[in-house]
Design a protein around this nucleic acid. Structure first.
Length: 200
DNA sequence: ATGTCGATTTGCT
DNA sequence: GCAAATCGACATA
């Protein structure tokens, strides 16, 4: 069962439901001739023009954010704090800048490559347990922003994992305190099987 | 033209 | 626990 999710999966009006459905799916990359993949265990939804936490809030259209206005199933990758590449999936229809941030994956294939990219010796929570490390482990770079997930470099496939609402923990998004009321929205979703996190 | 700060991670105290 | 790393988008002038 190795099949790319079709464009219709991403072309939905409710970015929150897509963020939930992405949990348990397999995110795969074939970059620099290396195949790597992992199961998505944490996501966040960003609801475009009406969401103060979104880069596209109020319809903001720049070189960086224009990718979010592109077709559903496009990769939106941007640089955070000048050094971290964060990977998002554009949803809804073209012109509506909704996106889902992939915050964590559980490594599956190409683990050696991921360890090498992350300069790690052992597999642990820090290998791909945060939004910046997911992109680094999978080899995703800002240069991939605008790339379609229906093509050969980056894609998502069904891993045959059943996820019910009971398996999903919802909570407020991380690092968006500046967004006022919108910072409280429960737009962050975590797969319960991976719910253990050291409190900070 | 200049200054501030972020959808974070890491290493040192 | 705290602060550095590091760059581009945005606000202010």
């Amino acid at each position: 069962m190795r099949k790319r999710l079709p464009k219709s999966f991403y072309r939905h009006h409710d970015v929150v439901s897509i963020a939930k459905k992405l949990l348990g799916k397999r995110l795969c990359t074939f970059i620099d001739g290396q195949y790597t993949s992992g199961i998505i265990t944490e996501t966040e939804a960003y609801a475009g023009v009406t969401d103060k936490a979104s880069h596209a809030y109020g319809g903001r259209l720049t070189e960086r954010t224009k990718v979010m206005f592109d077709h559903p199933g496009t990769a939106y990758v941007y640089l955070c704090y000048g050094l971290h590449h964060l990977f998002n999936i554009v949803t809804n229809k073209k012109g509506v800048p909704h996106a889902v941030l992939v915050r964590a994956v559980q490594p599956e294939e190409g683990i050696e490559i991921m360890l090498q990219r992350r300069k790690k010796k052992k597999v642990d929570k820090t290998l791909s347990g945060g939004p910046g490390t997911v992109a680094q482990a999978l080899g995703i770079h800002v240069k991939h922003s605008g790339m379609s997930l229906l093509e050969e470099l980056i894609w998502v496939e069904d891993a045959g994992i059943k996820v019910s609402d009971k398996d999903i923990i919802a909570g407020p998004r991380v690092g968006v305190d500046y967004a006022g009321e919108d910072a409280k929205l429960p737009y962050r979703f975590i797969l319960r099987t991976n719910a253990e996190r050291t409190s900070k």
